[in-house]
């Protein structure tokens, strides 16, 4: 067996999601090769070579891979996939965009967002927003898989010494071009890899009130998230959204503030180790999954929490 992991990176650093995907690859077994497709991406390839457990890095460095466009990356994955038993990518907006395109070109039925490896052919994945867990077996010659990153620990980013080999670029498809991006810049940890997450819901009432959560987040070294209701109401940008249709998180501590606990939100955070809910409605469904529930007005409780953390 041999596994090809399609790395997510920004040309200089490897995204944490790639490390979780390497762990899933290790659970499948066999040699692990990491593909770094980028432009001016030598630093990312070198970082990939240091990941513990990786035996080889394939580095395709060309202008058409600068922004990870699926139309360019998928044919590269397809060209390299022969010779591997499995092709894995993180189930992030990058992996979800690229991998099904490669799977269709390989005539393979992809297995999306696995949360467990049973054996080399059999995997567990959540369906119906995590309300059911399906165990599926693939008979395709190459298994094409995206990985729910919160379900696998991160591989160590240091300790490996894989060889970096150049891979031939496949050219620009000419179908799409990158125009630009508006990325949220924050000093806080990334939502999906943070050890602590504090999220606000509709109960926050407006975007300005999220400053209260940011204050607590900074004291805890936490990331700030939001429910779909808060994003749809325009309180915070879309990349804050935790839930089935947003990001799936599983931190050590998840603090839900003014969030009722709709199924779609729970699907995105119920695998957190410890859940705290602060809500003035004691009937709110969030309390059914919370380890510690505080029935209180968040406009009193959150400032009090901030103060208590100083003590």
């Amino acid at each position: 067996m041999s596994v090809l992991v399609v790395a997510e990176h920004d040309n200089s650093e490897i995204a944490p999601a790639t490390l979780n995907t390497v762990t899933a690859a290790a659970e499948i077994g066999g040699d692990i090769t990491v593909l770094v497709a980028g432009s001016g991406s030598a630093a990312a390839a070198d970082a990939a070579a240091k990941i513990a457990g990786v035996s080889k890095v394939l580095h395709a460095d060309s202008a058409e891979y600068a922004n990870g466009l699926a139309e360019n990356v998928a044919p590269l994955v397809v060209a390299l996939a022969t010779g591997y038993s499995h092709v894995l990518a993180p189930a992030t907006s990058f992996g979800k965009n690229v991998l099904p395109r490669a799977a269709a070109l390989l005539d393979v039925q992809q297995i999306s967002e696995i949360s467990g490896v049973v054996d080399a052919d059999t995997f567990v994945r959540p369906i119906y927003a995590g309300n059911a867990m399906a165990t599926v077996k693939s008979s395709d010659a190459v298994k094409v898989i995206t990985v729910r990153t919160t379900a696998f620990d991160a591989a160590a980013s240091e300790g490996g010494s894989a060889a970096v080999e150049a891979a031939d670029a496949k050219g620009d498809s000419g179908l799409t071009s990158y125009v630009g991006a508006e990325l949220s810049s924050s000093e806080r940890p990334e939502l999906t890899s943070a050890k602590i997450v504090i999220s606000g819901g509709r109960g926050m009432q407006n975007g300005e009130n999220f400053a209260m959560l940011e204050e607590v987040a900074d004291k805890l070294g936490a990331a700030v998230g939001a429910s779909r209701a808060a994003v749809d109401a325009g309180f915070v940008p879309n990349d804050y959204q935790v839930g089935q249709t947003g990001k799936v998180v599983a931190p050590d501590l998840y603090i839900a503030v003014g969030i009722s606990g709709a199924i779609q939100h729970l699907a995105g955070m119920k695998d957190s180790k410890v859940i705290v809910a602060i809500n003035k409605d004691e009937e709110a469904p969030i309390f059914q999954v919370a380890d510690y529930g505080l029935v209180a007005d968040l406009f009193e409780a959150v400032p009090a929490l901030s103060k208590e953390l100083d003590g």
Binding site: A134, T135, V136, K270, F287, V289, Y292, G293
Partner: peptide, 19 residues
Amino acid sequence: RLETLKVEEPAKREAGVKV
């Protein structure tokens, strides 16, 4: 192409305590 071997309930989370 895929064979579904089984579909199960997810692990249940127990409600904790109120503080």
